[in-house]
């Protein structure tokens, strides 16, 4: 394939990866920002979202769009609820102690993963996309006859992948409005800035924590429902998104939402483009190297505020 169309294909693939990544990383970032909890089980909430999407679409049957639309609502709700309950049952009992929450969430990770293996099984199971047309894309080329439009071999995207990009943007916008324009958002931001003072002003910090933990997990689950018609639901699928989300959150700045968005697109695009032209391994090496450099020279991340 020529360089131009090849680059365009890589950019499109990178944008799809980045769109899913931004939702997953956003969940991780909100949880850390408000609760100061490093949630190692985040990837498993992602996986749970995909698995539930499969169950929902299988149970409803009919046109794939029905099951998919239902999954889009039900899966994040259920996953959010599971997360909120595990916050009440586990994280609250250990007083959100930073070290013990890491061990606690590792425990949650194993419980969710192995329960899925025992019930859902080891297979990768597909969920049908609500719509999936292949759209061939044109490319413009200067030749003797002036500007010409050509249709290069393999340069295409599917309508569903475009939908994923738009859906992710919509969710991001909604999330931003929720955090900045609603009262619940205000309470969450107050808890984030100073939980003790918030408590003194009558904010039920414990409930806010459970809601935030649920919201973080629900965002991961939503990302998974969007991705499951492209990939398949599988009990080990949580590992990669967790690693990528951590990379994004460290580069963007833990707890910083704009930083997370910027970093997600940076990592998603570099993963898409570098792995097309060089190798996927190199893309991972560069991302890891970037994390190391950020930790050395700007530990608070691109947009994070330095701790005083």
């Amino acid at each position: 394939m020529d360089f131009g169309p090849h680059l365009m294909l890589a950019t499109l693939e990178g944008t799809v990866i980045a769109s899913i990544l931004v939702l997953t990383a956003m969940g991780l970032s909100i949880v850390f920002g408000v609760m100061r909890v490093v949630n190692v089980a985040h990837g498993e909430f992602f996986m749970l979202g995909a698995v539930l999407a499969w169950y929902v679409s299988k149970m409803l049957g009919g046109h794939p769009a029905i099951g998919f639309a239902a999954a889009l609502v039900i899966a994040p709700l259920v996953v959010g609820l599971i997360a909120a309950v595990s916050d009440q049952l586990i994280l609250k009992r250990i007083n959100y102690d930073p070290d013990r929450t890491i061990v606690g969430t590792i425990g949650i990770l194993f419980i969710i993963q192995q329960t899925t293996l025992m019930t859902f099984g080891p297979e990768a199971r597909p969920v049908e996309a609500p719509f999936n047309q292949r759209l061939a894309l044109p490319w413009f080329e200067f030749s003797e006859g002036g500007l010409q439009m050509i249709w290069p071999w393999g340069l295409s995207i599917t309508s569903y992948k475009l939908f994923v990009i738009f859906a992710a943007l919509t969710v991001l916008l909604a999330l931003w409005l929720f955090l900045t324009r609603t009262k619940i958002g205000l309470i969450m931001r107050a808890t984030q800035q100073d939980s003790e003072t918030a408590k003194a002003f009558g904010v039920p910090v414990g409930t806010v924590y459970s809601c935030v933990f649920g919201l973080g997990a629900a965002l991961a689950a939503l990302g998974a429902v969007l991705v499951v018609p492209i990939q398949q639901a599988h009990y080990l699928m949580g590992a990669d998104p967790l690693l990528m989300a951590f990379t994004v959150v460290i580069i963007g700045g833990l707890g910083s939402l704009p930083g997370t968005v910027i970093a997600a697109f940076l990592i998603g695009m570099s993963d898409g483009i570098i792995s097309v032209f060089f190798s996927p391994t190199l893309a991972q090496i560069i991302a890891t190297f970037l994390v190391a450099m950020i930790l050395v020279f700007r530990p608070q991340g691109l947009m994070g505020k330095a701790e005083t």
Partner: peptide, 16 residues
């Protein structure tokens, strides 16, 4: 790589 989950990016290397 055996753990890869996304493949479209490999296909442009298929010669015409």
């Amino acid at each position: 790589p055996p753990t890869e989950t996304s493949f479209t990016r490999y296909f442009p290397s298929i010669p015409r």
